[in-house]
C-alpha cells in the first residue's frame, strides 16, 4: 500500500519490506571497506531501513516486461585506437600521494 508521497509524514509503506539485521549492515560496511563504530550502527541501520522502505516503491511500479536501462543515452560501444598516451607530469601526479619513494607510490607491506 503505497500512497503518493512528497514528504516523510505522508509515507505509508507498511511493514519493513526487507528487514536489515545488524549482522547484515556490518557485512555490507565490511564489503564497502568502511568501519562502523558500535555507537553508529543503530543510526545507520535505521537510516538504511527507512530509505529502503521508501525505495521499495519500485517493487510496485508497472514495469512488467520492460527492459532495463543502464544509461540514458542509447546503448552503443564507442571504439578508439588502442594508442598509448604518456602523461609526463609525474611530479604533479605523485604530489597527491600520502607517501611516495623514488617516483613510486609507497604502501604498507602486502604479503
Amino acid at each position: 500500500m503505497v500512497k503518493k508521497v512528497y514528504n516523510s509524514e505522508q509515507i505509508e509503506i507498511g511493514d519493513d519490506y526487507m528487514k536489515v539485521s545488524k549482522e547484515e549492515i556490518l557485512h555490507i560496511a565490511n564489503l564497502s571497506d568502511l568501519i562502523l563504530e558500535e555507537n553508529e550502527v543503530e543510526k545507520y541501520l535505521s537510516n538504511l531501513q527507512e530509505i529502503l522502505n521508501f525505495a521499495n516503491i519500485v517493487s510496485n511500479a508497472p514495469v512488467e516486461g520492460l527492459d532495463i536501462t543502464i544509461g540514458s543515452n542509447e546503448a552503443q560501444n564507442v571504439f578508439r585506437k588502442d594508442e598509448i598516451k604518456i602523461f609526463e607530469d609525474n611530479k604533479s601526479l605523485l604530489q597527491n600521494a600520502p607517501t611516495q619513494d623514488q617516483n613510486m607510490f609507497k604502501i604498507p607491506k602486502v604479503l
Binding site: M18, S32, I51, L52, V58, L66, I68
Partner: peptide, 30 residues
C-alpha cells in the same frame, strides 16, 4: 557519503540486486 555507499553496496549485493537495482533500472525504462 558513508550512508550512500552502504545503501549502494546493499542494493548491489547478492540477494537484493534483483529486488532493488534491477527493478530500478526497469523503472528507468518506464
Amino acid at each position: 557519503v558513508k550512508r550512500r555507499i552502504i545503501l549502494g553496496t546493499y542494493v548491489l549485493s547478492s540477494g537484493y540486486y534483483d529486488a532493488y537495482y534491477k527493478k530500478a533500472q526497469q523503472v528507468r525504462t518506464l
